[in-house]
């Protein structure tokens, strides 16, 4: 079973999505696991899986912008808000079905994202962080104060669940399949994006923008395009979130959410599709696991009192630990494990 190399004899093989049989089978197995999951897990865990799915789409979006194109954004929370509120407003005020509200939310968020991406042509690194932070604050303030449209601090309730004819996606299990269908599409698109000209241009911009420009990459176009594609993903995630919770408030889209998403892609692995998935799973499960751990302890200790503070603290520690010991994130750890077993026992 030991391989000594991957040989490609045709262009089709070279262009294949996955190169080895093992890698292909792993994907089939994963898909099967995703389909079977709601049959074996309790409703509560299906609910968590839904949140993970939504986070995966959002994290993919941020990773396209920050991980692949190198444009750091802390406006993620606000862009999620733009998507969620657009979708809710389209569905409630205009009575559009979810199937139109979802892409509508994606497009509006893409537009807003590209507007806030314009400063990226002049600003890099820390300066861009501050510019996107300004975007976050402006959008958050607008959502909170445009009371007629958004309901202000009380938010919006009664956001309808998606429906096709008599079939509604109101239960957690039905929403699970809807979410993961979109996750699948988003993942495949993102994976393929970086095998295309546009994706390569994104990576070139990240690695050295001046060199990229010298090679003929139109910086302005590709930076704005990165903001647009990324924001489209985030808008779709926001829309899914809104129709899943059936209610939203400005508190769902604070700068804390932006930081959480940045943590997701840092822990998962910057500039990898699988990293977005690992990161989303890890960051969504962390508070759940912490709560499960603190539950039994709270009978003896007043730990529920400090749980919320503890959660933030642990997030911080985890990010620091990853930055020190594995800056390439969970995706890299997974690759190390694969390499170890693939080449074992002759790992040199």
């Amino acid at each position: 079973m030991i391989e000594c190399g991957v040989f490609k004899r045709t262009y089709e093989e070279d262009m294949a999505f996955r190169h080895t049989a093992l890698a292909r089978w792993r994907i089939y197995l994963l898909l099967l696991a995703v389909v079977v999951f709601p049959f074996v897990a309790s409703e509560y865990y299906v609910g968590i899986a839904n949140l993970i799915g939504i986070a995966i789409i959002g994290a993919l979006g941020l990773n396209i912008l920050t991980g692949f194109t190198g444009q750091i954004s802390v406006g993620q929370g606000a862009f999620l808000g733009v998507g969620a509120y657009t979708s809710a407003i389209l569905a409630i005020r205009l009575g559009l079905p979810f199937w139109l509200a979802l892409p509508g939310a994606g497009l509006v968020t893409a537009l807003v994202g590209s507007v806030f991406g314009i400063p990226s042509l002049r600003l890099k690194g820390l300066y861009l962080v501050i510019a996107t932070l300004a975007g976050q604050v402006i959008i958050e303030w607008t959502i909170g104060h445009w009371v007629d449209l958004t309901g202000g601090s009380q938010g919006m309730t009664n956001i309808p669940s998606p429906a096709i004819g008599p079939l509604t996606f109101a239960s957690r299990t039905s929403y699970y399949y809807l979410t993961y269908a979109i996750v699948l599409a988003a993942t495949v698109f993102a994976s393929n994006l970086f095998r295309s000209k546009v994706g390569r241009a994104f990576v070139a911009v990240r690695d050295r923008d001046i060199a990229a420009e010298a090679m003929g990459v139109h910086l302005f176009r590709y930076k704005i395009l990165a903001f647009a594609v990324s924001s489209f993903y985030v808008g779709v995630a926001g829309s899914l979130w809104a129709h899943y919770l059936n209610m939203i408030s400005p508190e769902h889209f604070t700068v804390g959410v932006s930081i959480e998403y940045l943590a997701m892609i840092i822990i998962g692995g910057l500039g990898t599709v699988s990293g977005s998935i690992f990161g989303a799973i890890f960051m969504t499960l962390l508070p759940v696991i912490l709560r499960e751990l603190t539950g039994p302890l709270s009978a003896m200790l007043p730990i529920t009192q400090v749980f919320n503070a503890l959660r933030e603290g642990i997030f911080g520690i985890v990010i620091i630990v990853f930055l020190i010991y594995e800056p390439h994130g969970l995706a890299k750890i997974w690759r190390n494990i694969k390499d170890y077993f693939r080449l074992w026992p002759f790992s040199y």
């Binding site: 912490l290 751990l293 200790l301 007043p302 730990i303 009192q305 400090v306 603290g313 520690i317 985890v318």
Partner: peptide, 16 residues
């Protein structure tokens, strides 16, 4: 981190 979490808890006990 897990150990610190456990260590954290008793330390936090007197506060509330």
């Amino acid at each position: 981190i897990g150990v610190m979490l456990a260590a954290c808890a008793p330390a936090a006990a007197p506060a509330p």
